[in-house]
Lab assay of single mutants.
Amino acid sequence: DHWHVHIDGERIRLDGASEEFIRTLEELIRRGTDARELKEIIKEYLR
């Protein structure tokens, strides 16, 4: 599956992301997590 998110107007691909990770991201977004912080979390995950 190819997922991607838009954060700060930037399109970030989440290739190979699990549904669990996507749900976690959605939860963080709902909580109002800062965009820079979200991008860091995604970069760490994709390593």
Rank of each mutant, 00 (worst) to 15 (best):
D1T: 12
D1Y: 09
D1S: 12
D1V: 08
D1F: 12
D1A: 11
D1I: 10
D1H: 13
H2Y: 11
H2V: 12
H2C: 05
H2T: 12
W3Q: 09
W3L: 12
W3K: 13
W3T: 08
W3H: 07
W3A: 09
W3F: 11
W3N: 08
W3C: 04
W3Y: 13
W3G: 05
H4F: 10
H4L: 08
H4Q: 06
H4Y: 11
H4I: 13
H4A: 06
H4N: 05
H4W: 12
H4M: 07
H4R: 02
H4D: 08
H4C: 09
H4V: 14
H4K: 02
V5W: 04
V5C: 04
V5A: 07
V5N: 02
V5M: 07
V5K: 03
V5F: 07
V5H: 02
V5Q: 02
H6Q: 09
H6A: 08
H6T: 14
H6N: 12
H6Y: 07
H6D: 15
H6V: 15
H6G: 03
H6K: 09
H6W: 11
I7Y: 02
I7R: 00
I7M: 05
I7A: 02
I7S: 02
I7L: 09
I7W: 02
I7K: 01
I7N: 01
I7E: 01
I7T: 01
D8I: 02
D8T: 03
D8S: 05
D8C: 05
D8E: 11
D8R: 03
D8W: 01
D8A: 08
D8H: 04
D8M: 04
D8F: 02
G9R: 03
G9M: 03
G9T: 04
G9F: 04
G9A: 03
G9I: 04
G9W: 04
G9Q: 04
E10M: 06
E10T: 06
E10Q: 05
E10K: 06
E10C: 03
E10W: 05
E10R: 04
E10Y: 07
E10G: 03
R11S: 15
R11K: 15
R11H: 15
R11Y: 15
R11G: 09
R11P: 12
R11C: 09
R11D: 15
R11L: 15
R11M: 15
R11Q: 15
R11V: 15
R11I: 15
I12E: 01
I12A: 01
I12N: 01
I12D: 01
I12K: 01
R13Q: 15
R13K: 09
R13I: 14
R13L: 12
R13Y: 15
R13G: 15
R13D: 15
R13T: 15
R13P: 13
R13N: 15
R13F: 14
L14Y: 03
L14H: 01
L14G: 01
L14S: 01
L14N: 01
D15L: 08
D15W: 15
D15Y: 15
D15E: 13
D15P: 12
D15K: 11
D15T: 13
G16Y: 10
G16S: 07
G16H: 10
G16D: 07
G16I: 06
G16L: 06
G16C: 06
G16K: 06
G16R: 09
G16Q: 07
G16M: 07
G16P: 03
A17F: 07
A17V: 13
A17H: 03
A17R: 02
A17Y: 05
S18M: 04
S18I: 05
S18D: 10
S18G: 08
S18F: 04
S18L: 04
S18K: 06
S18V: 05
E19T: 14
E19Q: 14
E19L: 15
E19V: 14
E19S: 12
E19D: 10
E20A: 14
E20Y: 12
E20H: 11
E20R: 08
E20G: 09
E20W: 15
F21P: 00
F21S: 00
F21L: 06
F21Y: 03
F21A: 01
F21D: 01
F21V: 03
F21Q: 02
F21K: 00
F21N: 01
F21C: 01
I22P: 00
I22W: 05
I22R: 14
I22N: 02
I22Y: 07
I22L: 08
I22T: 05
I22D: 00
R23E: 06
R23L: 09
R23M: 10
R23T: 06
R23D: 04
R23Y: 09
R23K: 12
R23W: 08
R23S: 07
R23V: 06
T24F: 11
T24W: 09
T24V: 11
T24S: 10
T24N: 11
T24E: 10
T24Y: 14
T24R: 15
T24D: 07
T24M: 12
T24P: 00
T24A: 12
L25M: 06
L25C: 02
L25I: 12
L25F: 05
L25T: 01
L25R: 00
L25N: 00
L25K: 00
L25Q: 00
L25Y: 02
E26M: 15
E26F: 14
E26S: 11
E26L: 15
E26Q: 14
E26P: 00
E26V: 11
E26T: 13
E26R: 14
E26I: 12
E26W: 15
E27W: 13
E27T: 13
E27A: 12
E27Q: 10
E27I: 11
E27Y: 14
E27F: 11
E27R: 11
E27M: 14
L28V: 04
L28I: 06
L28T: 03
L28P: 00
L28G: 01
L28S: 03
L28A: 07
L28C: 04
L28E: 04
I29E: 01
I29F: 07
I29Y: 06
I29M: 08
I29W: 06
I29N: 01
I29C: 03
I29P: 00
I29A: 03
R30Y: 09
R30K: 10
R30C: 06
R30V: 07
R30N: 08
R30Q: 07
R30M: 10
R30W: 10
R30D: 05
R30T: 08
R30F: 08
R31M: 11
R31C: 05
R31E: 08
R31D: 06
R31H: 08
R31P: 00
R31G: 08
R31W: 07
R31I: 09
G32E: 03
G32L: 04
G32D: 03
G32Y: 04
G32C: 04
G32W: 04
G32Q: 05
G32R: 03
G32N: 05
G32F: 06
G32M: 06
T33Y: 06
T33K: 04
T33W: 04
T33D: 03
T33F: 08
T33G: 05
T33E: 04
T33M: 12
T33N: 03
T33Q: 04
D34Q: 09
D34R: 08
D34V: 07
D34T: 15
D34N: 14
D34I: 06
D34L: 12
D34H: 12
D34G: 12
D34P: 15
D34E: 09
D34Y: 04
A35V: 11
A35T: 10
A35Y: 07
A35K: 07
A35L: 09
A35N: 07
A35F: 08
R36H: 12
R36Q: 14
R36I: 10
R36N: 14
R36P: 06
R36G: 12
R36T: 13
R36V: 11
R36S: 12
E37I: 15
E37Y: 13
E37P: 02
E37V: 15
E37N: 07
E37F: 15
E37W: 12
E37S: 13
E37M: 13
E37L: 14
L38V: 07
L38F: 03
L38T: 01
L38K: 00
L38N: 00
L38E: 00
L38R: 00
L38C: 01
L38M: 05
K39R: 12
K39L: 15
K39G: 05
K39S: 05
K39M: 14
K39T: 06
K39I: 09
K39P: 01
E40L: 14
E40F: 12
E40I: 13
E40G: 07
E40Y: 10
E40M: 13
E40V: 09
E40T: 10
E40H: 11
E40S: 11
E40N: 12
I41W: 09
I41S: 02
I41H: 06
I41G: 00
I41D: 00
I41M: 12
I41L: 13
I41P: 00
I41Y: 12
I41V: 10
I41A: 07
I41Q: 04
I41T: 06
I42G: 00
I42P: 00
I42A: 01
I42T: 01
I42Q: 00
I42D: 00
I42S: 00
I42N: 00
I42E: 00
I42C: 02
I42H: 00
I42W: 03
I42Y: 03
K43A: 15
K43H: 11
K43L: 13
K43P: 00
K43E: 13
K43W: 14
K43S: 09
K43D: 11
E44Y: 07
E44A: 13
E44D: 08
E44N: 11
E44P: 04
E44R: 13
E44W: 11
E44L: 09
E44T: 06
E44V: 06
Y45C: 01
Y45T: 03
Y45L: 03
Y45P: 00
Y45Q: 03
Y45K: 02
Y45N: 03
Y45D: 00
Y45W: 11
Y45F: 09
Y45R: 02
L46H: 06
L46P: 02
L46Q: 07
L46N: 06
L46W: 13
L46C: 02
L46V: 08
L46E: 04
L46G: 02
L46A: 03
L46S: 04
R47H: 10
R47Y: 10
R47M: 13
R47V: 10
R47G: 10
R47L: 08
